[in-house]
Write a protein that binds this DNA or RNA. Structure first.
Lengths: 340, 340
DNA sequence: CTGAAAGCGCTAACAC
DNA sequence: GTGTTAGCGCTTTCAG
């Protein structure tokens, strides 16, 4: 790593400025000189230091991504979308994984600020629980453009791409109603999460509009993981007055539901109709044909990155808040049918 | 971003050196002075520049990760493992996604070198096809510690964590033989890939050891994707002298096989036994109980990161090549049984 | 315990 | 077309 622009300059018998010029294609350099410099660069296997350049230009060409669970395909796809657009714009990515913990989010935010990155795309953890004042303070005074992806941060206003969970849940529930169902259960996520509340609102709205009474006994809360909905589904199956359909609000949870149904030889949708939330690629690859409302993932990443780039290019009205709300797409595959 | 160590120094009426000292807990600072400096830092909401620090110390505390497909859960888990250990050691991560393309790998390598990162963990694309001389040249002369994860790079020798694909395939095949199968088909990946060849070797070895003749008609090549094995499986099912078991060598491909089997109401394992390669979490969540040999993912990431850290700490014998080979774990769930 | 000064590798006016 | 010079923001001897 010892070799610098100085070494190149000396060996090529020019000034550092000239080397810099050929490196950046800026200003005028005689073709002959350029060639000489290039040769030395090749010969010495020189790679310029982005660090030094960043310090000098105050530009890092780097953005930060903060996600709760890098191993969840949902976020994997988001990152893929982001990285595609970042690539096209020659932006590097610093990745921070938070294990769904608010304090690690805070740490990541600080780290990214130290790195003097140009902007941040964050998919915050959904937990609505714990906003320390330090967290909010950091977020608000960070002085770096931030784009929220499918997030919700209390007390604060940020630009971002949001999913309309209410509408998604509404569409899913209505699909079941339209198919003829009247007894519709919901297996929702953790009760104190915003997305959980939003999805419940959509469910309620659809039922209300169709004059179906919301029965408490049909409302269940899991923890987003499949075991919880596996147990809940078994419980549902053993109910006296059991529903004819279940709306399961997360991609992991619907797996548990399917498992419980298969185990007891319950035919989908004949004996029990179901509809899910979020993409179920793997399940459908297996040929199961489960209906769902799908939040776009790769597209969300792309849209977020584009919004960030826009922000970076319009430093003037930097403080304007932009929000784009994406309504999940309803994809019907037959699992929602009512077959009396 | 205007505010620097100088501003802090001025306002706190000390020298930059002193500010630096309290920032880094280095050297002696009178408690009183420290407090004064800290207060100003808080007041001005100052965050030191990692860029400037890096330039000054020649340390970036950053490593690079290069993966072919960030949206594939396999790599998501690897990254999770890496990021866990990186976190514990206060190392940042720059992420590069290559879309399984060798030229993007090259680009990523150069970029990371410019960023003066401390080390690189790379999971190269498996394609054995195209190694430009520039690629190999860059790789060999990059002057940064590199750890290979489950990779194979022709002509070159690197430290890394490797999966014993031969042994894995051997174990899988033998599990079928031990269960009583004699007619065993294999649905393998792309024919020119190293992992494909290795897995075939393991298959052959197990059959040979048990005096079972390798029948060409039972050997199939897909493209790692599920459609290919879906079609191949349908073909297998329609064979005159059809096998009683199939070894499917990738996590995506076995989904296609399962789909074909389900569609035709072929009971697993009664009418057709199967065994896969790589984890099948989602499938097993559904309660399908498919046997497989599992390459560890999170563990691989962790092991790779630890190996890299070791390397960084022993700059002296930096050139020593370390290889750790992990044998995939055989997990039997019943889908391999022979039920005549 | 604290400060002055040099330097990390590069860019960007400004001269020539 | 090319070189000189002064930083970018921080750390680090070396003095005191």
């Amino acid at each position: 790593m010892a070799i610098t622009i100085k070494d190149i300059a000396k060996k090529a018998q020019v000034s550092r400025t000239t080397v810099s010029r050929v490196l950046n294609d800026s200003g005028y350099v005689k073709e002959e000189t350029r060639k000489k410099v290039m040769d030395v660069i090749k010969e010495l296997n020189y790679t310029p230091s982005a660090i030094a350049r960043s310090l000098s230009t105050s530009k890092t060409n780097t953005i930060g991504i903060i996600v709760p669970e890098i191993n969840n395909p949902f976020f994997g796809e988001i990152i893929k979308g982001i990285s595609q657009i970042a690539d096209e714009n020659n932006l590097n990515i610093i990745l921070c994984n938070t294990d769904d913990k608010r304090d690690k989010e805070l740490k990541a935010l600080k780290l990214l600020k130290e790195q003097r990155i140009e902007g941040i795309i964050i998919t915050p953890t959904y937990a609505e629980d714990h906003f320390s004042s330090e967290y909010l303070n950091t977020l608000e005074h960070i002085g770096i453009p931030i784009i929220l992806l499918d997030g919700y941060v209390k007390y604060s206003e940020f630009s971002g791409i949001f999913i309309d969970h209410i509408k998604g849940a509404y569409d899913a529930t209505r699909a079941l109603i339209n198919a003829g169902h009247k007894k519709i259960a919901i297996i929702n996520g953790k009760q104190n999460y915003t997305i959980t509340k939003d999805r419940f609102k959509g469910y309620v709205k659809a039922l209300n509009e169709n004059n179906i009474i919301i029965e408490d006994k049909y409302v269940f809360y899991g923890d987003f993981d499949y075991e919880s909905s596996y147990e809940i589904t078994k419980k549902i199956l053993s109910m006296e007055d059991r529903p004819s359909a279940i709306f399961v609000t997360s991609n992991m949870m619907i797996l548990g539901t399917i498992k419980a149904l298969y185990e007891q030889n319950i035919n989908i949708p004949k004996d029990m109709a179901i509809i899910g939330f979020d993409k179920l690629d793997l399940v459908n690859i297996l040929g199961m044909n489960i209906s769902s409302v799908n939040g776009p993932t790769i597209e969300m990443g792309k849209a977020g990155m584009k919004m960030l780039i826009d922000k970076l290019n319009n430093v003037s009205q930097n403080d304007e808040i932009k929000r784009r709300i994406i309504v999940p797409e309803l994809v019907l595959k037959g699992s929602e049918k009512f077959i009396p």
